[in-house]
């Protein structure tokens, strides 16, 4: 069983801030141990989760008024499990059941896991729940905020726009949506499948406050997610990310062990790593550190 509590001998958290590459290390370890895919989607949200859980979100687990997070792109659950492990919410023993028979730790998040409030995985579902939770916070006169991570391809879902309209109409400014704009979806590039490259204008035209940010800059993410605004509109942060971030052959879409496949990043939505690929990926993370 892979030891996952230490990243290259250094503390898991640096000055209470989550280190994105510590999240990535756990993603790689667990994906390899379980021999599953969805690696690219998990790697590209490491900074977003580090910013949210390391600095932006307030409150302790169990507090009614704590800020809440909903992972609407549920296929990145392993990245969230990694954060929960680094924060001490779950144990090594629990994380090591990822994708084992009978485990609560599946590819998509289950609310049975400590720190996860909602089961997600069906794209287009989480944002509606987040909007309801934001409305609840307002009705309860709570200062808690709702953070919801969706993907750019998830904006294909009509239900996303139902939720977008309701949140804008009711001026739910306690709601922050982060779009993981990695430009990928299950058959390739979002611009080739259903082009929505002008997400900024689309959300703005629906009445949202729109920020754009480098999705791999923790400090930039923290800045926009912490920014106060007199605007009563809900807030969407379009975070540009690179699918498979941190592992160059994944960013390039090259499956080293399956040379017959076309070179495109979406391969790493599906493929598990070979032993050789895992070794190279770990070495890259180590060099980056």
């Amino acid at each position: 069983m892979i030891r996952s509590t230490l990243f290259l001998g250094v503390s898991l958290t640096l000055e209470k801030k989550l280190h994105p590459n510590a999240i990535r290390r756990l993603i790689l370890d667990q994906s390899k141990r379980a021999n599953v895919g969805h690696i690219g989607s998990c790697l590209c949200v490491a900074e977003i989760l580090a910013a949210l859980y390391g600095e932006v979100m307030k409150g302790k687990p169990g507090d009614a008024d704590r800020d809440r997070f909903i992972l609407s792109k549920g296929h990145a659950a392993l990245a969230l499990y990694a954060v929960l492990r680094l924060l001490g919410e779950i144990t090594d023993e629990e994380l090591n059941t990822f994708c084992c028979d009978g485990s609560f730790f599946g590819v998509h998040p289950e609310r049975a896991v400590p720190g996860i409030d909602f089961s997600t995985g069906s794209l287009g579902h989480g944002l509606s729940i987040a909007v309801g939770a934001a409305l609840a916070a307002r009705m309860q006169k709570s200062q808690r905020r709702l953070f919801c991570l969706i993907s750019d391809a998830e904006c294909n879902e009509g239900s996303v726009w139902e939720a977008v309209m309701f949140a804008a109409h009711h001026k739910l400014h306690n709601l922050h949506v982060i779009i993981d704009a990695n430009g990928q979806q299950a058959f390739g590039l979002t611009r080739d499948v259903l082009n929505a490259s002008n997400l900024n204008e689309r959300w703005k035209s629906f009445g949202w406050r729109v920020s754009e940010v480098d999705g791999h800059s923790v400090s930039a993410l923290v800045n926009v997610l912490s920014s106060e605004s007199n605007d009563s509109a809900p807030h969407v942060v379009i975070a540009t990310t690179t699918f498979g971030r941190g592992v160059s052959f994944m960013e390039q879409g090259r499956p080293l062990s399956q040379a017959h496949l076309p070179v495109q990043p979406i391969n790493w939505h599906y493929l598990p790593m070979s032993d050789q690929e895992y070794k190279i990926a770990l070495a890259e993370l180590e060099r980056a550190h």
Binding site: V131, A133, A134, A136
Partner: peptide, 28 residues
């Protein structure tokens, strides 16, 4: 009046809203 919401012609979102409200302690 403070407990009545017209979700619009958007039934999926209406159920999603109700889910979020119920988890926070409401009875939608």
């Amino acid at each position: 009046p403070d407990r009545f919401f017209n979700a619009g012609v958007a039934e999926q979102n209406m159920i999603g809203l109700a889910t979020g409200l119920a988890e926070a302690g409401f009875l939608p």
